[in-house]
């Protein structure tokens, strides 16, 4: 078996471009997903049933159906419905964000509920509203405990973002597929993709470990 580094070299500019897309899609999705997930988790923990029930269903749906199916629903259904036409990049970020929101919502909930209830009582006894107590007392403590789980979620999201190649978002996997089609070769495109993903997640895990040590 010969391994043709030269075709990887030919494709390097496109793979690099794809890598930047993967990074951009992942960062946007984790940010949007985390913000959305915070809202979902508050809804889920609410004592009001009309808030709790829809948010519980949201989490059940996004955890209970395959990400690829969600990507297709968003790409071929939701985005054309809202936007008038398809857009792979917007669909990719939307689907990954919605999915991440369901998982991060559970991370928030577990983190918040792990804080001793005396903390909320102490905050309230000072005269804080529930929102102030969350912001100044509960969340700063809970977030520290959430960092490892968030790290996992972030790494999973980077890898799962490869699925959006199937709706032609021009990220790493998309260009690997293109390379395979052009040269009719299997090892070079996919090992190159695997290598890039590995480098990304490896550095991400190092970065997260550093963050964890710092806070």
């Amino acid at each position: 078996m010969d391994f043709r580094f030269d075709i990887i070299w030919d494709y390097a500019p496109l793979l690099l471009k794809g890598t930047l897309y993967t990074i951009a899609i992942s960062i946007s999705s984790i940010l949007l997903g985390s913000i959305l997930g915070l809202g979902v988790s508050f809804g889920k923990m609410s004592s009001r049933r009309f808030l709790r029930w829809p948010m519980q269903s949201y989490v059940n749906f996004f955890r209970g159906t395959p990400l690829l199916v969600q990507i297709y629903i968003v790409h071929f259904g939701l985005i054309p419905l809202l936007y008038g036409k398809t857009n792979a990049l917007i669909a990719a970020i939307t689907a990954l964000s919605l999915n991440a929101a369901a998982y991060t919502a559970e991370i928030y909930r577990a983190g918040i509920q792990s804080i001793d209830k005396g903390q909320m009582e102490a905050a309230k006894s000072l005269g804080m509203t529930h929102a102030q107590a969350m912001r100044f007392v509960i969340l700063p403590q809970a977030i520290r405990r959430m960092i490892p789980a968030f790290g996992n979620e972030f790494i999973v999201l980077v890898k799962d973002s490869s699925l959006v190649a199937l709706i032609t978002a021009p990220e790493i996997m998309y260009w690997s597929n293109a390379m395979k089609a052009q040269y009719i070769r299997v090892w070079e495109p996919y090992l190159a993709a695997a290598f890039i993903y590995f480098v990304l997640t490896y550095f991400l895990s190092k970065l997260l470990a550093a963050v964890e040590r710092k806070v």
Binding site: G118, Q119, A122, K124, S125, G127
Partner: peptide, 20 residues
């Protein structure tokens, strides 16, 4: 009630200091 609580301080058995 939040206004009333600003006038009523409370000290707990377990202290409940904010550890962060």
């Amino acid at each position: 009630i939040t206004k009333i609580r600003t006038e009523v301080g409370m000290v707990f058995q377990q202290f409940n200091l904010f550890p962060h």
